[in-house]
Amino acid sequence: MRLIHDNKMITVRNLTKSYHVGPITVPVLKGIDFSVEYGEFVAIMGPSGSGKSTLLNVLGILDRYDEGEYILNGTLIKPLSETEAAYFRSRLIGFVFQSFNLLPFKSAIDNVSMPLYYQKVPRRQRDEKARRLLERMGLADRIHHLPTEMSGGQRQRVAIARALVNEPPLILADEPTGNLDSETSEDVMKIFSEINAEGRTLVVITHDEHIAARARRVIRLQDGRITNRNLG
């Protein structure tokens, strides 16, 4: 771990990653270069299997990469102990998944406040903050509902509230509207725009050009490479 002052939220240089399936090595990211400014809203697009999720997982420190450099908020991310990885995930990153990934046995408010639990924030403050976020997501009347008692759009809004609760500078979302109908998608993307307007950096994977249009910039991925050049 090393501190580097490049004044960018994300800098990726010549990043590669392969999966090992038995004796076969499958290269998935074949030299990725790009950076994301603080406060930017970037969409990642590309055909299925092009490596979008793999890239986002690396950015979210959920997965390791092989070669190259990944600098997050001025810190070289490689190689990290699990404890350090947990620290950065907790302080810098909010993750939103296509399949929501809420804990089914916890109510909306308990799901949302969980990241603060791992930051050792006292219960009352946690609940207060989670409640405010849920209200902002228009879920004031669903605070004590279980995920199974909510619609897909509602669940995704709970998941977004959870990603926001520890106020991370960077939000990563992997097809956040992939499981939602177009109307709910629009609601969710509105929320993302708001979040970005607050100054948070946003990196969102999407298949929907309509949604990508909200982003300031689109990174197009194909077969493990970025296809649209000359990016900031």
Partner: peptide, 16 residues
Amino acid sequence: TREFGIRKAIGASPSS
């Protein structure tokens, strides 16, 4: 497994 994965993704440390 999935639950622990989610907990880790939102910042749970190995010791926790």
